[in-house]
């Protein structure tokens, strides 16, 4: 594997649409649950072990070479909120565009043709990692890290939180992020039926409410 390719894919500047999404942080800020660095850390930890673990396992499974369409269906089954399913597919379509420009492959072309409106983002992320010559652990790390880096970046904008404090939150979560990615990659090796289905009901509920806000800064 190329460690540099992993950095390109994991870079927050990778142009795959993530910048417009808060990962549920915008409603959490509005409701006062996230108001400083400590509450941001709690939010990120919760998301990491639920939505993060599930996304990381899907990404690892796609990188491992499991059928992306079966994984897409598995992702649907693990995403009870229609708003979050729509978000995941929109981001998957955006990731696919960046992936086909950066690491083109017949497998990406096939998934793009089968899901022109977008497959679930973690599945596309995993397949992108595979096309870049990366392994399941790498894909899982990318997906797990994204679930915490997205909200942290969004909260810097939403609360004018000190960016050093937000980045320190991510640094302190790094060992946990490693463990979640490891567990996700191990599950992916046991096959599609072994993939975790952890979810965060409050994130699902607030995502539905947020999608109906008339005025918001982030798309999700």
């Amino acid at each position: 594997m190329s460690r540099a390719a992993l950095l390109v894919l994991a870079d927050g500047r990778f142009p795959a649409g993530g910048h417009a999404h808060s990962g549920g942080a915008e409603p959490a800020v509005a409701e006062g649950r996230v108001h400083d660095a400590d509450s941001l850390a709690d939010f990120c930890r919760g998301r990491l072990h639920t939505a993060g673990l599930t996304a990381a396992a899907l990404a690892a499974a796609a990188a491992h070479g499991l059928d992306p369409l079966a994984l897409d269906a598995a992702a649907d089954a693990r995403t009870p909120s229609p708003a979050l399913r729509a978000t995941a597919r929109r981001l998957g379509r955006q990731m696919m565009r960046a992936a086909r420009a950066t690491w083109p492959s017949p497998e990406l072309d096939a998934l793009a043709a089968a899901r022109p409106r977008g497959a679930h983002q973690p599945v596309v992320l995993g397949l992108t990692a595979r096309s870049a010559g990366l392994g399941p652990e790498d894909a899982a790390h990318c997906a797990a890290y994204e679930t915490v880096s997205g909200p942290a970046t969004a909260v810097v904008r939403l609360l004018s939180l000190d960016p050093y404090h937000a980045t320190a939150v991510l640094a302190r979560l790094a060992p946990e992020t490693d463990r979640v990615a490891q567990a996700a990659a191990e599950a992916a090796r046991r096959g599609i039926d072994a993939l975790p289905a952890a979810s965060a009901p409050l994130l699902d509920i607030t995502a539905e409410a947020h999608a109906a806000w008339p005025v918001r800064l982030f798309a999700s």
């Binding site: 500047r13 142009p15 795959a16 649409g17 993530g18 910048h19 417009a20 999404h21 808060s22 929109r90 955006q94 565009r97 960046a98 969004a154 904008r157 939403l158 800064l217 982030f218 798309a219």
Partner: peptide, 14 residues
Amino acid sequence: GACPHTAIRDDISA
């Protein structure tokens, strides 16, 4: 996502 210039220049996917 609070950054219109990002959406027209740095990440144009949307």
